[in-house]
Write a protein that binds this DNA or RNA. Structure first.
Lengths: 230, 230
DNA sequence: TAGTGGTCTAGACCACTCA
DNA sequence: GAGTGGTCTAGACCACTAT
């Protein structure tokens, strides 16, 4: 057989695994042999196998060879878009409104996450995001003013803090948490739903290098679904 | 400067973007120039930039060059482990129990997803997963018996259907959905909680090639959090 | 210690797409 | 049409690790 594109080779190997030619945990031929079999350079086989390894389908070890992953980990890649885009993607008209905004000392749990000293203040803001004038998501956020000084003068009438931060501090790292929560009084009122209503929540903490940037809780309206391919 | 590992180069470019040397949307030097600057082969720069592109940090176009992504997409990579591993990872003792099991014609919505004819039957199973003898998650599942004939004889006393399927049909593709739902009577009873309790739900449909394999709803107990790094 | 993957190089040709 | 990324090759050396 003569396949010489890394994509073709990847597909072929994938099929051979799926077909059972190489069982779970089994060792597959080494790069040199596959290169010979496919009639291509070892580099090309390497690239195909590297992709399969990133994907979790095989496990590679020097000297140990390449094996079909016996405990395949299902990975979902979630893209977390800016809210406005999320709304507009489903043909809704997006609008946001700031409900509350202040500069105050945060509660202890937030303060610890932000690594602030006891009396240091932080920027607090509550935003409601609307789709076609109906509540879409309620956002509660703390921002480290030291790390993001421009925050106090930002034009939150035009740009949601969500978007403003993405443009200002674009490539931060962080942690996300997904959970379900029953709406308390404040959230229920903001989203125009009843207390206790089950809501989907995204919790996000963001860093830029060592500097804490922001901590956000996003309560989606009832029925919101986040989906992804495996 | 002389950097010749793709990882070093990637890091360097990352830093130059973060530092603002190349602004959002700005074009960065082409591969040949960077290769010269770093004192390495173009292939090496290519690999570094390809990684950054997969990551969403830059956008690459032939002739258009490489640009810093002006609308960085936050990607979260979620690993969805088998339940037993999830429980054991937090030092819990895992056990599962089958609550209901039958072979019947599924309701219309499930039937459509499974592409079954009106009177065709499917395998239905309800499982409760326990951590330290307390309800951890409640699983409701339909399985296509045509695609997975072995299912009727599988040893669900030892292995949860969850794990059995992973071992039997390891590399399937599919769709996942995350949402929040208020517990109905059946779910509340299985998870030993109250009706209306907000629960985190994972919905999963799985295919192998063109063949539908299974459709699952997993209700996690109150307070469950799924987390991931950005 | 020997086998296997990890990576770099220099050069080449191709495919897209912008101007 | 020309510039830029996409990819392949053949060869080389290195780094890990199973045996």
């Amino acid at each position: 057989m003569s396949l010489n594109s890394h994509q073709d080779i990847r597909q072929s190997i994938e099929r051979r695994i799926l077909s059972g030619e190489w069982a779970l945990g089994a060792r597959i031929p080494d790069e040199a042999k596959l290169a010979e079999e496919y009639g291509c350079a070892r580099t090309t086989v390497n690239r195909a196998l590297r992709a399969l390894a990133e994907n979790g389908m095989v496990i590679r070890k020097r000297k140990g060879g390449t094996r079909v992953n016996p405990a395949p980990v299902k990975q979902a890649r979630l893209e977390i878009p800016v809210l406005r885009e999320q709304v507009e993607a489903s043909d809704g008209i997006y609008r946001h409104q700031v409900l509350n905004m202040s500069v105050t000392a945060p509660p202890a749990d937030v303060r610890n996450q932000l690594r602030l000293s006891p009396k240091q203040k932080a920027f607090y803001i509550e935003t409601i995001h609307l789709a076609d004038e109906k509540p879409y998501a309620f956002e509660v956020r703390w921002v480290n003013m030291t790390a993001v000084p421009g925050i106090v003068d930002a034009p939150f009438e035009e740009l949601s803090i969500n978007e403003w931060l993405v443009r200002t501090v674009p490539f931060s790292s962080g942690e996300v948490r997904f959970s379900a929560i029953g709406a308390d009084k404040a959230v229920a009122s903001a989203l125009d739903t009843k207390v206790g209503q089950a809501l989907f929540v995204i919790d996000r903490t963001t860093w830029l290098g060592d500097a804490f940037i922001t901590m956000m809780k996003l309560y989606y309206r009832e029925g919101h679904v986040l989906h992804s391919r495996l």
